[in-house]
Amino acid sequence: MSVEVTNETAWQIDGKIFSDLGVWVMSQMRVSTQSDLTIMFVDPDPIAQLHMRWMNLEGPTDVMSFPMDELRPGDGGTEMEGVLGDIVLCPWVAAQQALAAGHSTMEEMMLLTIHGILHLLGYDHVTPEQERQMFGLQRQLLLTFFALRQGAGAQATLPAGTPDVLAEWDREHGAGGKTAK
């Protein structure tokens, strides 16, 4: 399995943790070791542009998934192989959501990574039943990953003095602090 992590933001993020998480989740979902995944961290403007282009929704969002080979979880006997796809995350939006949820930005981004991988594997949360299944699975995967790593403790941080580009985006676009969810 290959997981490429790219950070195009000012956030200091340990890409290895996200690479390890991606490999682990794909193995748990029985995706072939020959499969590829890309995880990219971007600022509010690039994700807002993707959000408008692909979903016709305004404003930055937390995570977007772009499947490639439309892989599905393996059935125990066979493992799906190919390019899983790309996940694009915005740490700025994740930080807002983490604050509201009462956990760290790193935990939120890890949850969003798992959420994005599940979307790439065909999971969705349109109906209440789909939401229960997907959110239950992503919670189980995240808690199990945390338990196996036993307090990795890594954090996503911003260098001192880094401007809040999400607040700047909101001011420039008249969003008044209302980013898309």
Results as ranks from 00 to 15, higher is better:
8 E>M: 06
140 Q>A: 09
48 A>Q: 01
52 M>V: 14
38 T>G: 03
127 T>G: 05
33 T>W: 00
1 M>V: 06
64 M>N: 07
162 T>Q: 12
126 V>G: 14
123 Y>S: 10
41 F>H: 04
23 V>H: 07
94 A>V: 10
159 P>V: 15
137 L>R: 11
85 G>V: 12
132 R>C: 15
95 A>K: 00
26 M>S: 04
178 K>T: 05
40 M>V: 12
67 P>D: 09
96 Q>L: 10
99 L>D: 14
138 Q>H: 08
149 R>D: 12
131 E>N: 08
151 G>N: 15
118 L>M: 12
77 G>R: 02
97 Q>G: 06
72 R>F: 01
140 Q>H: 10
31 V>H: 08
75 D>W: 02
75 D>E: 13
114 I>W: 01
108 E>G: 04
152 A>D: 15
117 I>V: 14
21 L>E: 15
10 A>R: 10
145 F>W: 10
144 T>A: 10
42 V>S: 00
149 R>M: 09
24 W>L: 02
168 E>N: 14
114 I>N: 00
178 K>D: 04
28 Q>N: 08
179 T>Y: 03
113 T>F: 00
140 Q>Y: 06
77 G>W: 05
66 F>E: 12
66 F>S: 09
131 E>F: 10
3 V>G: 06
163 P>S: 14
53 R>H: 03
135 F>N: 10
137 L>K: 11
92 W>T: 14
88 V>I: 10
42 V>G: 00
82 G>A: 07
33 T>Y: 00
150 Q>M: 15
141 L>Y: 07
152 A>M: 14
97 Q>H: 06
161 G>S: 11
76 G>I: 13
28 Q>D: 11
175 A>T: 15
136 G>V: 05
37 L>F: 04
67 P>I: 11
128 P>C: 03
29 M>W: 09
48 A>G: 01
87 I>V: 09
13 I>Y: 01
73 P>R: 02
126 V>P: 09
49 Q>W: 05
180 A>S: 06
1 M>G: 05
138 Q>G: 06
21 L>T: 15
114 I>V: 05
94 A>F: 02
5 V>E: 01
22 G>K: 02
30 R>H: 12
153 G>F: 01
23 V>G: 09
27 S>I: 10
37 L>H: 07
142 L>E: 14
106 M>G: 07
167 A>M: 04
118 L>K: 03
78 T>K: 08
88 V>K: 00
174 G>Q: 09
30 R>S: 11
149 R>P: 03
137 L>A: 07
177 G>K: 10
89 L>G: 13
164 D>H: 05
3 V>H: 06
120 L>S: 13
68 M>S: 12
103 H>L: 07
11 W>Y: 07
166 L>M: 11
13 I>P: 00
11 W>D: 09
26 M>I: 05
10 A>H: 11
2 S>F: 13
47 I>M: 09
47 I>V: 12
157 T>G: 02
130 Q>C: 05
144 T>H: 05
124 D>T: 12
169 W>F: 13
35 S>W: 04
56 N>E: 15
181 K>N: 13
165 V>G: 07
57 L>H: 08
181 K>M: 13
12 Q>F: 04
161 G>P: 03
114 I>A: 02
7 N>K: 07
3 V>Q: 08
7 N>F: 11
170 D>G: 02
73 P>M: 02
128 P>M: 02
102 G>T: 15
24 W>V: 03
43 D>A: 13
177 G>N: 12
129 E>W: 09
176 G>N: 08
72 R>H: 08
80 M>A: 14
162 T>L: 08
44 P>L: 05
